[in-house]
């Protein structure tokens, strides 16, 4: 358990770390990354409830009363299918983002 201490010493003395390995993330960076990942997971968890809400919305709409104001089935269908397209895509994007956020070992830019 002495290795991290040595590394810190080396960093303090301004000497380069002897071993060639990815520069470890600073604690605050690590923290920020974890935080970001947790928020993304939160968003993923919220998705089904969001979807439920969106798909419950048509229940509140009033149908057209013989040409009066209201919504037609075609409009409703467009809405429902739009949500149906958007929700999975959003979910897919979230999953991708979460995977990126939880793979910090892979350096984005190589020096």
């Amino acid at each position: 358990m002495t290795a991290p201490g040595q590394d810190t010493e080396a960093a303090l003395a301004g000497r380069p770390s002897r071993r060639a390995r990815p520069v470890p993330l600073l604690p605050e960076e690590q923290d920020r990354q974890g935080f970001r990942r947790r928020r993304l997971v939160d968003a993923a968890c919220a998705m089904p409830f969001f979807g439920m809400l969106l798909w419950w919305l048509p229940l509140l709409w009033r149908g057209t009363d013989a040409g009066g104001e209201g919504i037609t089935t075609a409009q409703a269908l467009i809405y429902i299918f739009a949500v149906w397209l958007a929700l999975p895509l959003a979910t897919g994007l979230l999953i991708r983002a979460i995977r990126r956020a939880s793979a910090p070992d892979r350096p984005e830019v190589r020096p």
């Binding site: 048509p58 229940l59 149908g63 075609a74």
Partner: peptide
């Protein structure tokens, strides 16, 4: 097609909230 839908017997937006939620 959308026009046809709105001209069909099912044109009027009408869902049973109970069945909609329950079946979902």
């Amino acid at each position: 097609v959308l026009a046809r839908i709105d001209a069909s017997p099912m044109a009027r937006w009408q869902v049973d909230a109970g069945r909609w939620t329950g079946l979902m």
